[in-house]
Amino acid sequence: MRVSDLARQEMAERLRRAHEEGLIDLSEFDERVGVVWGARTRDELRSVTADLPKPRRQRNHGIVFADSAGGVAMKVLTTIWACVVAVALTSWGIMTLTGLTDDPWWLWVAGPPGVVLLVLYVAGAGRPPRRG
């Protein structure tokens, strides 16, 4: 049976993970990826990874953020934003209770960066892939 470019790409990714885990060295990785991209049938693809252990399930415990560089970046930025908002809201609350201000200035601290994070997330930055 013929093989698609998507299947080749998935197999190349499997080889990349095997290289990262130290199962194959760089020259062997290069050689096997060349075979993957030259493969025409599923049997040719299977032969490339026949000696490798079965792949472990990919970690994607993240419901909100993916386990990728973009997901980690969005998680860090969102955590920093939440901490800054918490400090600003607490400061504003203390200042309001003591009569120093009645202006909701903390919204200016929370709003603009929050909107930027939301736009990035809606655009797909750091989101886990859809299942389905």
Rank of each mutant, 00 (worst) to 15 (best):
T98P: 10
P53K: 11
M95P: 00
G34A: 14
G22A: 05
T96S: 11
T41G: 07
R16N: 11
G22W: 07
A88T: 04
I94A: 04
R14G: 01
E21V: 05
V116K: 07
L117S: 11
G111M: 10
G114H: 11
W105E: 15
V3G: 06
P112L: 13
Y121D: 10
L97R: 04
R130C: 01
P104S: 05
A69I: 15
V33F: 04
G38W: 14
G111V: 05
K54L: 11
R42Y: 00
V35P: 00
P104I: 07
G34C: 11
M1P: 15
A66H: 12
V72H: 14
A86R: 01
L89P: 01
G70N: 07
E31M: 12
T79R: 00
V3C: 09
T101F: 08
F29G: 09
R130H: 01
V122E: 00
D30H: 11
L23T: 08
L118Y: 12
G124M: 04
T96D: 01
A123H: 12
R127T: 03
H61S: 11
T49G: 06
A50K: 02
G124V: 04
T78Q: 10
W37C: 14
L120C: 10
D25R: 13
V115N: 08
A125E: 00
C83G: 15
V87M: 14
W106M: 12
L52H: 01
R2L: 07
M1D: 03
P53Q: 12
M1N: 04
A110K: 14
R17N: 03
W106E: 15
V76P: 13
F29L: 15
E21T: 14
V76N: 11
G38P: 03
D103R: 09
V116G: 11
L117G: 13
T101D: 15
D103S: 13
M74Y: 02
V109F: 04
S27V: 12
R42L: 08
I63W: 10
P112F: 02
S4Q: 12
L52W: 02
R46E: 14
P112I: 13
I24T: 14
L45M: 05
L120G: 05
G124L: 02
W37V: 14
R57C: 01
V33S: 10
H19P: 08
L118Q: 09
A66M: 11
V115A: 10
L97V: 04
V84L: 13
D30C: 09
R42F: 00
